[in-house]
Simulated assay, not measured.
Amino acid sequence: MITALINQKGGVGKSSTAVHFAYWLQRKKQTVLLIDSDAQASSSMWVKSLGITAIAETDPNELAEKIPEWIEGFDQVVIDGAGGITETTRVILYFSNVALIPCQPTALDLVSSGSAVKLVKQAQRFRSDLIGATFINRAVPRTKLMVEAETALSKIESIAHLKTVIYQRQCIADAFGQEQTVFQMGVSGEKSATEYSNLFEEVMALWANNGNL
């Protein structure tokens, strides 16, 4: 399975989710490759410290040429999408089985996520097997905006909305600097680890329910 994290807006937790997903898959005894197409290259640096194979590449032509070669021999591939909606994002969607769109529960982020949703829907015209899904990330509990975001995202046609919410916590912010994931942080990362596990189980269920085993 090839899973891409995409969004037009930076700072939505795309790289953090990609790294945690790659690590979670590795703990499930899967062989994992992370492809980092973001210019900051933070996710590739991060996962290498976790013992996960990573390739950093931002050029869309290079990605189009090399992805089929790179993914050989891996059970799972996680792609950290480029910042913004670029030609690189279109190339990534050409190869992906699942496109995940993290969205912060703010009015600006909902608008920005709309561009990513539109791009996934365009790709689905040519790739009927491409699964698109949104989820709320970096949320603050019990806010009106979060409820409104849940309602808006759940109404998007042809795009699933995952029920699990990833709440904003310091342990996630600290994980990169500590070269860890929340799964390795003990009690301080326990709540976030549970949320990520639930989210990733939903992703795998989407894939399985689409006729893939």
Rank of each mutant, 00 (worst) to 15 (best):
Y167R: 09
S37W: 02
K121E: 11
N97G: 15
V165P: 04
L110T: 02
Q40D: 09
W207L: 11
A54L: 02
K191I: 15
T3F: 06
Q8L: 12
S16E: 09
Q40H: 12
I85Q: 02
F183G: 00
Q168I: 03
Q40V: 08
Q26T: 07
A39F: 06
C103E: 06
D36Y: 00
G84L: 02
A149T: 13
E148K: 09
V120W: 01
S96R: 01
T58R: 01
V12P: 07
A39G: 03
L33C: 05
A56F: 05
L213V: 12
F200T: 10
I92P: 04
T88A: 02
N137G: 00
A160Q: 10
K163P: 12
A54T: 03
I67K: 03
S197V: 04
C103H: 11
R125F: 14
F183Y: 13
R142G: 11
Q170C: 08
F95L: 03
L130G: 07
A193M: 12
L100M: 10
Q30D: 09
V182W: 04
I67Q: 01
M45I: 06
V32F: 09
I101S: 01
S128G: 11
L130R: 03
V47W: 05
E57V: 08
E65Y: 12
L34C: 10
K155L: 15
Q122W: 14
P102I: 07
R138I: 14
L25M: 14
F176P: 10
L50N: 07
K14R: 15
V111Q: 07
N198L: 13
L34M: 05
T134Q: 02
N212M: 10
L153K: 03
E201Q: 13
I55A: 09
A116W: 03
A193W: 05
F176N: 01
N7D: 04
A64T: 08
Y196F: 15
E195R: 04
L93D: 03
G10R: 05
